[in-house]
Design a protein around this nucleic acid. Sequence first.
DNA 1: TTCCCCGCTACGGTTTCCCGTAATAAAAAC
DNA 2: GTTTTTATTACGGGAAACCGTAGCGGGGAA
Lengths: 221, 221
Amino acid sequence: MFKRILIAEDQETQNISLQKTLAELGAAKPEYVYYCDDALTWIKNAVKTEQPYDLLITDLYFEEDHNRQKIAGGTELIKAAKEVQPDLKILVFSGESKTAVIDMLFKEMNIDGYVRKARHDGQYLKLAINAIHNHKKYLSPDLKLARKENNSHDFTDLDIAIISQLVEGTPQKNIPYYLQENNIKPSGLSSIEKRLNLMKEVLGFSKNEQLIAYCKDIGII
Amino acid sequence: MFKRILIAEDQETQNISLQKTLAELGAAKPEYVYYCDDALTWIKNAVKTEQPYDLLITDLYFEEDHNRQKIAGGTELIKAAKEVQPDLKILVFSGESKTAVIDMLFKEMNIDGYVRKARHDGQYLKLAINAIHNHKKYLSPDLKLARKENNSHDFTDLDIAIISQLVEGTPQKNIPYYLQENNIKPSGLSSIEKRLNLMKEVLGFSKNEQLIAYCKDIGII
DNA sequence: TTCCCCGCTACGGTTTCCCGTAATAAAAAC
DNA sequence: GTTTTTATTACGGGAAACCGTAGCGGGGAA
């Protein structure tokens, strides 16, 4: 089993239960931090003293508080940690369920496991740690069957830019100027109208207000 | 300290850490369930056998799975539990941070405490339980700050009806018909325009889209 | 009752948005 | 290089939203 484990998790109770879960697994007593910057510091020091960690368990989203952090979230922490210690195993433990995000973690960040904070997360954590210890990848099963919704729309950068401008209060007729300044193409007013129509049609909406509410719900803005 | 505590929390690791936190407080070993329906059953049985619970600690949002539940979420559970046992103390432990939701819990559901799942939730849980045991109300401090919004607007039933209709996709000019059917007064188109203008002016907005996004953020729709 | 006040509604002018069509530009196919 | 196809932009008529003003209509006070 792993000898040196580092936990990066800002939520106190989650952090505690992670420690307990690891103890039940027979893993060595883990070390734990509540901030990303601390995590990286500890990893660096461990490498220096030639007692590197075997496994990093980290959340994705950390809440800001009075301690200003250089590293804002789990993704950046993973990136920085891999630069310091490329062979460090990484298990992400987060509430995020968007497939796009998780795919990115496995493909670009090359993480070793992902467990979603959900009903049976304790069991899955144990399975994940065992799998990773055997040099396998692990993804908690509640995500394997996460399917795409049938009439969902793939929001492009343009779509998000348009919607963001609407939420900012920019009149539709002025959005072309914004798009040109930010080198987003196309930028014509007709293209904006067309794009808005497409989004609303796919989602079965008739008014911008519905679209805004939907985007807020799914969290793209 | 409390003698009989029931925990309703679907996330396994959170459930575990709640138990540990209570243990550290010197409270009796709590009982715990992973589903709302179970929670209500246990509360009913405890009342029947004249060993009622002192405190219910519950999440707000429970994830659906193969076990179909009658009670979907924490709010409904609280309502049902209060009917069975009106004097039951209730502590909500959830990630929700929207002031509208939390205000509703205190005012309409008459809960005794709210701790947000966040950085120092473990400490705050202990404070909350002590406060409730002394018959005080408790709100975790990370939310007290979020509460004092500078230019907030008191949304009336009319306001919410108008905004809801916009989100439904009803054209502004058709909303009077809806208001008349539901006996909401005033119902004139000019009154709707006036009301929308007032809301936007107070909040510093110029377009409906901004207003919708704001209402989504604070959780009134 | 009569008057005043206030909130609601009705109306018209202006702006913005919506939507179809046509013109132009860019890319792909030949 | 030219044609075809596709994408982008420009334009114009009509609908909706916006905004100021004027006309009701009910409640309260003298």
